[in-house]
Nucleic acid binder design. Structure first.
Lengths: 108, 108
DNA sequence: TTGACATATTGATGACCATCAATATAATGA
DNA sequence: TCATTATATTGATGGTCATCAATATGTCAA
């Protein structure tokens, strides 16, 4: 069975998680900063719950810095998952999106 | 809000639906043929339910032929949805998978 | 160590949804 | 028309999961 595609789709199949991923795109945020960025949509435990799920799916990366945890979107894995979906469900299409931006963005 | 990406992810976020899409990849099947292909996993009403949902998400195409309905996977739309995901959540990657196989497959 | 802060975990609740049996609708052939 | 076949719809049921308040865990500063 094709389990990675399923886990990926399930992780993406929630509006709050997609919003979280958008907030984490191209920057590192702490949990509290993320809660603030979501402007009262959801409480901190809910955000932590979603972050745990997204981390488990490989869609976010984490860095502990003192008592803070910084999260960011893992574009590489998301791209790989989309590639998998395309390979399986769109064999008549050319696929394999490729990284164009070589430098890694790091926490300052 | 980015609703198409959400509807796509929700449609893909189920094992039975992914199995159905695999069965409908590159061929047209009637509902009953699909039920048979799924080898007793699920009953006909369940298959019809999933097909309705997938059709609503644009992921399958339908043709009525007498009292039969033929379904097939819509690779174009799935590719477009993956492209949307990549555009939003992987801006550092090159995207836009492209059709390589120009002829349309039709029902004989 | 203690107190303050940041995040995770727990347990409860309600909403959504996958599934099924039963039934309805629709189309065909006789 | 009627019987048959193909598919959709309905209504019920159980499971999964998003959310929250409350609490626990962990980390630093003093």
């Amino acid at each position: 069975m094709n389990d990675e595609a399923l886990q990926f789709a399930k992780a993406m199949a929630d509006g709050t998680r997609q919003e979280i991923l958008r907030q984490l795109c191209c920057r590192w945020l702490t949990v509290n900063a993320l809660v603030l960025a979501l402007e009262g949509q959801v409480r901190q435990p809910t955000v932590s719950h979603h972050l745990g799920l997204l981390e488990n799916a490989g869609l976010v990366r984490v860095r502990q810095r003192g008592r803070h945890r910084h999260y960011t979107l893992n574009q590489a894995h998301l791209t790989s998952c989309c590639g998998e979906l395309l390979r399986v469900y769109a064999p008549d299409y050319d696929l394999a999106p490729v990284r164009i931006n070589e430098e890694e963005r790091e926490l300052t």
